[in-house]
Amino acid sequence: MGDASNEKVIQLLEEQLAYTKEQNKNLTKQIEVLTEQIRQLTKALYGSKSEKSKYQIPDGQGSLFEDDPSFNEPEQTEEQSIEKVSYTVTRKKRNKKRNDSFHEDIEIEEIHHHPANLACDCCRGEMVEFSSTLIREEAKFIPASLKRVQHFEHVYECKTDRR
């Protein structure tokens, strides 16, 4: 009985040794792949910076799992089996001016600015208005209403002949 049990133990030990050697071989290969990936990533991170790096694929993304055979076959997901349709919408660009945000139906409040002194500096005669100019527009928000405020500047001239 001693020889038969010893033979079984030896056979079990040999099988375990073969399994351990195979496992060691696989782990060594995996370590080599990971070490190469670390080397490539370290070089990409700390190496010379160039847009045309030899470690980049044309689309700009390198594969981390190229050398690992378990990642060679693509995984099929539910999202990949659904057909995707995309549309491109081209909108006409509209050149919008600064004050185009005012709508035509907004109430307009006008504020007129007249000079304080209507006497002519040279002859002391009374000046007469000959034009007005819109200086600026501003939005004035009053709760529950919006008003358009227009400022006009009035220009006066002397009608006295200066000759």
Rank of each mutant, 00 (worst) to 15 (best):
D3P: 06
S5Q: 11
E7S: 06
V9G: 06
I10T: 13
Q11K: 15
L12V: 04
L13A: 09
L17M: 15
K25E: 14
T28A: 13
K29C: 11
Q30K: 13
I31L: 10
I31E: 04
I31C: 05
L34M: 11
Q37T: 12
I38C: 03
K43A: 07
A44S: 11
L45T: 09
Y46H: 03
S48W: 09
S50L: 08
E51V: 12
K54W: 15
P58N: 08
G60Q: 02
Q61R: 14
F65K: 04
D67R: 10
S70P: 02
F71W: 03
P74L: 12
E75Q: 14
Q76H: 09
Q80W: 08
E83K: 13
S86F: 05
R91P: 00
K96M: 12
K97E: 06
N99V: 06
S101A: 08
S101L: 08
E104I: 07
E109D: 02
E109Y: 12
I111R: 06
H114E: 09
H114W: 07
A116L: 15
N117Q: 03
A119Q: 10
A119L: 15
A119T: 10
C122S: 15
E129I: 14
S131K: 08
T133D: 06
E137R: 11
A139I: 09
A139V: 12
P143S: 03
A144Y: 11
K147S: 00
V149A: 00
V149Q: 09
Q150H: 04
Y156D: 05
T160N: 15
R162Q: 09
R162G: 03
R163D: 07
